[in-house]
Design a binder for these strands. Structure first.
Length: 774
DNA sequence: GTAGGGTTAG
């Protein structure tokens, strides 16, 4: 239910009868001890969360005062029952300013500020509490100038008004303005001093905070706590401890601040000693100690505390959940998630991040669906997790739906979610949408720019990548080392050799970026692709660190392109030394041998792989059809529609042979029998996926096939509207698919200008099961 | 008797 509409009409209806109510009613105005006693009881029930008890008491009261209603109203609001609060408000016979203020506060914190503003405008009588609610609730939403507006509007400002305005500045990081307000008058109380002090602590200005602390007229326990926790958070445990020992009074806050200070600064034993000495503990203290163990991955100790603690709250469960997740114990994390009595946004975000970072793409998506079913608000963190999962498995349709949802949620312009969105579009090969999303982002950070540059570079759009880089240089965002990796990769992929070399040697001077191994890898790749193998090799010898397997891999790839088997072999040997289990390298070297017909060497590689227990990752291809992901492997016989698919392929094969097509069996890089080779060409996973796409996707719509393997030394195979030619044995089925979608089965067999058809060799992850709805 | 401002954990 939307409260605003009902509310406005309710307020309007009663505005004309309010003067009578304000004048009071003789029977109600009289002191009634019994009513007051029951009002107190209602408040007590509500504060303890016993809404039903309060309701029972309320219903049984023979006489009520406006305070009775107000107590119920405040109780409903505090227990998250906003719709009930609104309807109760409408039933109050003679609402007073108290009633209005209570509802105003409830709207401001749990509904929308617009609703609160509407009620504010209609309030017949306003007092300083009314203004104070408006000041602090706008401040809490970051709307400092509106907070200031209500502050100035207030005819009478009490201590809370001044402190509210002070807190408005402090909480939004505007410490200078807070100081200005503070200096403008002298009548400040302890809360004001503490607020300003906390402001300095928050922005790390401990000496200014200390000066306030030393000069303040009166210190209460909060003042000490603010300073102790401030020092603790900045890692100054010596000073934190000194103040802790000097404090005249210590409460749970003081103790907990010291415990979490030691914990966060890696002083586990000290943390535990203080924790054990605590005279009184609350859930926060327990959580702080648990977090200390969690940080050190000491999950058994954390669990022991968790089981011991008498009063667990959501944060306690969340601490265990994130602990298991960060330790890679996803099963335990999920068990916590499933058993916790109550979940909040942190719980969902932690579980999503656990799956997403653990590479469990399917579980991430399922959990996200569950999140929607539970009515949980999808926050920025959840969007970012799920988008990065969509990127992992190149699930474009799913990602685009998320894009729509996040725009509606108002997250489209920020860089936290925006960067994940860009990465998703690039991973799915959708440069246009990435560019559009990038242009719509209101805040761009260095990651946004880097994502764009690397994204374009990775798909071979070097010029576009460099254009983005040039635009970036006109902004205030400074390029970092990752930016330069993208720039060098862009030069490499678009053959801008001299430009790349020039960036490499000037980047330290121009951008203060020192060459890291990643930059050298780009340069080896760049020189190697250009056929300057000797220079690439020399650069490897001259660089200030040992070459790693990625660098040798770049050299190996280049050796293959420029047909230098000797260099290729020595590069491969280095890689086998460094990474004896890197299956990709065996396959790559094996392919070098195969392409020159050295089947015996290919055989040796296979024996080597078996001896060393190297497992080749099986190749999968998949396709999204109506929000379902269909996965295929070579010669697949699991898919429910396999008969249809194979029959269709047989038919295609017949027509191709009639048109004079001969299978390019020599390109199948396995030493297998001729017939077997043909079978592999006919039924390799990409082809099955394309066939399924042709059968199930309406003509005119793109068929996007994604595969998990991305072979080194070969560029992406993308057949696009522009008809890029494809130098792989897989060309034929795709050209064929393109042609049969354009209903010219044979005549367009060797041209690729049919409807859009894309093959993404994206290195995506294979989903665990098939044909599942996302 | 009922509403508004400062300190701790994830």
């Amino acid at each position: 239910m939307r409260p605003s509409r009902h509310l406005r009409s309710a307020a309007r209806q009663r505005s004309h009868r309010l003067p009578a109510a304000a004048a009071g009613d003789a029977s109600e105005g009289r002191l009634d001890a019994e009513v007051i006693r029951r009002n107190k009881a209602i408040t007590a029930h509500m504060r303890a969360g016993r809404v039903a008890d309060a309701e029972r008491l309320f219903a049984a009261m023979p006489r009520r005062s406006t305070s009775t209603y107000n107590a119920m109203l405040a109780g409903y609001a505090a227990n998250g029952r906003l719709p009930l609060a609104v309807s109760l408000f409408r039933a109050i016979p003679r609402p007073d300013t108290f009633s209005y203020n209570t509802l105003l506060h409830a709207l401001a914190v749990s509904s929308s500020l617009a609703d609160a503003r509407g009620l504010f405008d209609e309030m017949p009588v306003k007092d300083s509490v009314t203004y104070n609610v408006m000041i602090s609730s706008h401040a809490n939403h970051g709307l400092v100038s509106l907070a200031r507006h209500y502050f100035e509007l207030a005819p009478e400002k009490d201590a809370v008004s001044w402190n509210g305005m002070l807190a408005a500045y402090v909480r939004n990081g505007r410490i200078e303005e807070a100081r200005g307000l503070f200096n403008s008058r002298t009548e400040w109380d302890a809360i004001s001093w503490n607020a300003l002090m906390a402001g300095y602590v928050q922005c790390g200005k401990m000496s200014e905070a200390r000066e306030l602390f030393d000069t303040m007229p009166a210190r209460d326990v909060v003042s000490w706590n603010t300073m102790v926790s401030g020092y603790a958070r900045r890692g100054n445990m010596v000073e934190a401890r000194r103040l802790f020992d000097a404090a005249p009074v210590r409460d749970v806050f003081t103790w907990t601040a010291v415990v979490s200070g030691y914990a966060q600064n890696g002083m586990l034993e000290e943390a535990r000693r203080v924790f054990d000495a605590m005279p009184e503990r609350n859930p926060v203290s327990w959580n702080a100690m648990m977090a200390a163990y969690v940080q050190r991955r000491m999950m058994d100790e954390a669990k022991e505390l968790f089981d011991m603690m008498p009063c667990r709250n959501v944060a306690s469960w969340n601490t265990m959940l994130t602990g298991y997740a960060q330790a890679g114990m996803l099963v335990e994390a999920r068990a916590v998630f499933d058993t916790m009595p109550k979940r909040d946004a942190v719980s969902w975000a932690a579980m999503l991040a656990a799956y997403s970072q653990g590479g469990c793409s399917e579980q991430t998506l399922w959990l996200f669906v569950e999140m929607g079913r539970c009515g949980e608000w999808v926050n920025r963190s959840a969007f970012a997790c799920v988008l990065s999962t969509c990127a992992d498995i190149a699930a474009l349709e799913c990602g685009m739906q998320l894009h729509g949802r996040l725009i509606r949620a108002g997250y489209g312009v920020g860089c936290f979610v925006g960067n994940a969105l860009l990465a998703m579009y690039f991973k799915c090969g959708n440069m246009e949408d990435a560019q559009n999303a990038f242009e719509e982002m209101e805040e761009k950070d260095v990651v946004s720019w880097n994502t764009m540059i690397a994204g374009y570079a990775r798909h071979g759009f070097g010029k576009e990548a460099l254009q983005i880089f040039d635009t970036m240089r006109t902004t205030s965002t400074k390029p970092d080392d990752i930016t330069l990796v993208g720039v060098l990769a862009a030069c490499s992929h678009s053959g801008l050799v001299e430009k790349g070399i020039s960036y490499f040697y000037s980047m330290h001077h121009d951008f203060g970026v020192t060459a890291k191994p990643e930059h050298y890898t780009c340069m080896i790749d760049l020189l190697g692709r250009a056929g300057r193998l000797a220079e690439a090799h020399d650069l490897m010898k001259d660089m200030p660190f040992e070459p790693d397997s990625t660098m040798w891999g770049a050299l190996l790839g280049a050796s293959r392109i420029h047909r230098n088997p000797e260099l290729g072999r020595s590069a491969a040997e280095k890689i086998f030394e460094l990474e004896p289990e890197n299956a990709g390298m065996y396959v790559l070297l094996s392919n070098i041998y195969a392409s020159s017909g050295k089947w015996r060497d290919v055989g040796k590689m296979r024996v080597m792989m078996e001896e060393r227990g190297v497992k080749k990752v099986p190749g999968f291809s998949w396709i999204e059809v109506q929000n379902k992901v269909h996965t295929f492997s070579v010669g697949d016989c699991v898919h429910p529609e396999k008969e249809k698919i194979y029959a269709f392929l047989e038919e295609l094969d017949m027509r191709m042979k009639k048109a004079g097509y001969v299978s390019a069996t020599d390109m199948v890089l396995h030493d297998v029998e001729e017939e077997e080779k043909e079978h592999m060409l006919k039924y390799h996973s990409e082809k099955l996926a394309v066939a399924y796409g042709i059968l199930n996707i309406p003509p005119g719509r793109p068929i996007r096939v994604i595969k998990n393997l991305r072979r080194l030394g070969r560029k992406l195979s993308v057949i696009s509207r522009s008809g890029t030619s494809i130098p792989t044995p897989h060309a034929a089925p795709f050209l064929l698919a393109a042609s049969c979608r354009s209903r010219h089965w044979t005549s367009t067999l060797l041209t690729a200008n049919g409807p859009p058809l894309e093959l993404l060799s994206s290195g995506g992850k294979v989903l665990g099961s098939r044909g599942r709805t996302l």
